[in-house]
Amino acid sequence: MQQSGKKQALIREYAQLVRRLTPKSQLGLGCLRAFWVGGAICLLGQWIAEAAQRWLSLPLSAAQTAASITLVFLTALLTGIGVFDRIARYAGAGTVVPITGFANAMVSPAMEFKPEGWVLGTGARLFTIAGPVLVYGIASSVIVGILYYFIRW
């Protein structure tokens, strides 16, 4: 869009006004909540992994996978019964950053788009939010692998 200088000045002036009159999120409080809830989720993961090592005698990496799967299961359950989004509203990044955020991003659209059918609704939309995570995660791992093959650091 071609904009005259006057219009641009108007836009700048308005942006300042909006910045001044829009209430700010409370950064300190948000961080504190994210910190303790996120820390607690990691602690839970640690306990599950240790339990899996002790009682199922799994090696460390398998125990960590077991912890991931358990956290994903708990997230799916809490999302299903409609509790997870309330916790997330309080905790913000505290639930987004751990694997719980990834799981919730898969489970919630799967439920949401059920009315559109099992194939095009649940099946297709399962990845609407978490899809990018897999795309960029898998793509980065392939790049790391290829680089490692050629460079071998």
Binding site: G30, R33, F35, G38, G39, L43, A93
Partner: peptide, 16 residues
């Protein structure tokens, strides 16, 4: 576990 996990989450909150 608690401190590092919490810190990574708090950093995410700052980014958001």
């Amino acid at each position: 576990v608690f401190l590092v996990g919490g810190a990574l989450c708090a950093l995410g909150e700052v980014l958001i």
